[in-house]
């Protein structure tokens, strides 16, 4: 590639066996009205790992998640999930394949109680008690406010509910968009602990984040986006050790969050 920022642009293809790749984006383009937002995004999400999607504001991270989820239609390229092409599939079909989505604005149902939000997320029927208690251990506030309207929760509690909703049933892949945005440091700490539990459970996660410290703590692999393209992909450990590369790829957004 001619872009000087592009490093190691497709490393996972060579380092991760095909069977271990859960999600594969290949030259994905997405238009929103007349705007060409994603301009050939390519990266892979290995199974059972936390993959961090980093980049400045407006780089195309949220659009990437929404394109995977079918909320924006892909105009070109291929999205493969667990070997199946999901590029043109409808959002409910993509969700039913085992992808859960936690949007940036959390999108909890404010007029429904915490319990009702969870009931809806449990697509297969009754909530599993063991799993629910595990979630209560991760996010005790949800147990406390179980019968309260979700709109009355604090920002951090809403984020917990949004994540709990995504994990109330086992999913193949979680797409999580900026879970720490606007949260107090103490809540971010609790969130990291919760994600570490998910990590121990070998949950596959594609997580958009601007807080590099948070991303570094949790990430196994990383893709960095700029201007609608992936400009770096590789292991998080490699990026975490290379300060020069961090500054080159993430620039001001890194400084702002460190």
């Amino acid at each position: 590639m001619s872009d000087p920022l592009v490093r190691n642009s497709a490393p996972m293809a060579s380092t991760v066996p095909a069977a271990d790749i859960l999600l594969d984006l290949d030259d994905v383009h997405t238009h929103i009205e007349q705007y060409h937002i994603l301009q050939g995004v390519s990266f892979q999400v290995p199974r059972g790992q936390f993959t961090m999607l980093l980049g400045r504001n407006g780089a195309g991270k949220t659009t990437t998640l929404r394109s995977v989820m079918g909320l924006w239609k892909v105009s070109q390229g291929r999205i493969t999930f667990d070997g199946a092409d999901i590029g043109g599939a409808a959002t409910p079909d993509i969700a039913c394949r085992g992808i859960a989505y936690v949007p940036e604005d959390m999108s909890i149902f404010s007029d429904l109680t915490v319990k009702e939000n969870m009931v809806l997320a449990a697509r297969q029927g009754e909530m599993d008690d063991t799993r629910l208690n595990w979630i209560f251990d991760l996010f005790p506030a949800l147990k406390k406010f179980w019968s309260l309207e979700a709109g009355a929760l604090s920002g951090g509690q809403k984020q917990m509910l949004a994540i709990a909703r995504a994990i109330i049933e086992p999913r193949e892949l979680l797409l999580i968009d900026e879970p720490t945005k606007g949260l107090a440091p103490a809540i971010v700490g609790a969130m990291i602990e919760a994600f570490q539990e998910l990590k121990q459970a070998q949950t596959s996660v594609l997580l958009v984040e601007q807080n590099f410290q948070f991303a570094r703590t949790l990430g196994d692999s990383v893709a960095v986006m700029d201007d609608g393209r992936v400009v770096h992909a590789g292991s998080m450990a490699e990026l975490a050790e290379n300060v020069e590369l961090q500054q080159q790829l993430l620039g001001l957004s890194l400084d702002a969050h460190q």
Binding site: A90, P92, A95, S107, F109, R123, R165
Partner: peptide, 12 residues
């Protein structure tokens, strides 16, 4: 309240 999220949960 939010039809898009209902679809993202897997409902038509």
């Amino acid at each position: 309240e939010n039809g898009e999220m209902v679809e993202a949960l897997g409902y038509r």
